[in-house]
């Protein structure tokens, strides 16, 4: 669905952000794009949508070149940025104005999502930031585009809304759709994401499914120096250490800890690259 081949990008020539980036994203998954501040997550999302142009390399998204921003491509892509903006109109009118531009837009689905997220059917001006964000998310989901990109979708949402959002998004993924979510709030979405894309310093450290990760790694709490084998990553806590280790065949699989995976990936790039970047 999305193919990056040897992509070079930087906001200035002196400081490239991505150099020779290769990446492949498939339909039918919810990708969690993780990375530190300034790692280039939002830029990667913008390159996918055709909002910024790489200096070198080939990109193919949904069989098209996103740089051209042709209507046949744009009708299949919906991007919800971190900071959102809404006009001063009624929420249903807002959706009605978008409806003709997205052939698969489902208006009743939009209204259902608004109801589930408890968004009042008022003027957008009267809404809080969180409510406006929920309107955009409902709009993005109801547009039924093949590619849905969300940049920090849970920012500004209250705790019950985050739970509802997970439920709605899980119900909206299907084989022809790819959802890419960039987030720092990994705990908000860890049960939703089924593939992880970890980037740091312009490099993809891991691009793997959560089942593949739990097949190859174990995440566990151990007492001080209890492990026999050197872990890939360890961090101290009150009970001893949280470790990430390579999983042996006989060892039972553990539940994935995205935060620990993230920290381990950043700390031990080389090993993670070797294990997951393919």
């Amino acid at each position: 669905m999305i193919q990056f081949s040897d992509i070079y990008f930087g906001y200035s020539n002196a400081k490239p952000l991505y150099s020779g980036l290769n990446l492949s994203l498939k339909a039918g998954s919810i990708y969690g794009l993780l990375g530190k501040n300034g790692a280039g997550k939002s830029t990667l999302l913008k390159i996918m949508a055709g909002l910024v142009y790489p200096q070198k390399g080939q990109i193919e998204v949904l069989g098209a070149n996103p740089i051209k921003r042709q209507p046949s491509f744009l009708e299949q892509v919906f991007f919800i940025p971190e900071e959102i903006d809404t006009p001063n109109i009624q929420v249903l009118d807002f959706a009605k104005e978008h409806l003709p531009f997205y052939p698969k837009f489902n208006f009743s689905q939009f209204k259902n999502h608004l109801a589930e997220l408890e968004v009042p059917l008022t003027n957008l001006k009267a809404m809080s930031f969180g409510q406006k964000k929920k309107v955009w998310i409902a709009l993005g989901l109801a547009a039924n585009t093949a590619l849905l990109i969300l940049d920090e979708p849970t920012n500004g949402l209250d705790i019950p809304s985050k739970r509802k959002l997970r439920k709605i998004m899980a119900a909206n993924i299907h084989d022809d759709r790819c959802i890419v979510i960039s987030t720092h709030q990994v705990r908000d979405l860890d049960s939703l994401i089924d593939r992880i894309l970890l980037v740091d310093e312009g490099e993809v450290i891991a691009n793997a499914g959560t089942d593949e990760i739990t097949e190859k790694l174990v995440f566990k709490q151990v007492g001080n120096q209890e492990y026999l084998e050197e872990p890939l990553y360890a961090e101290n806590n009150l009970m001893g250490q949280l470790v990430v280790m390579k999983r042996s065949e006989e060892e039972p699989a553990t539940r994935m800890d995205i935060e620990l995976f993230f920290n381990a990936g950043i700390a031990n790039k080389k090993a993670f690259n070797k294990l997951f970047n393919h």
């Binding site: 055709g50 909002l51 921003r69 744009l74 009708e75 919906f78 940025p81 903006d85």
Partner: peptide, 16 residues
């Protein structure tokens, strides 16, 4: 000048 609006405008499915 508001990035969100710029994104919405550029990604709206219509020709330049």
């Amino acid at each position: 000048s508001a990035q969100a609006k710029g994104i919405q405008y550029l990604l709206l499915p219509a020709t330049n």
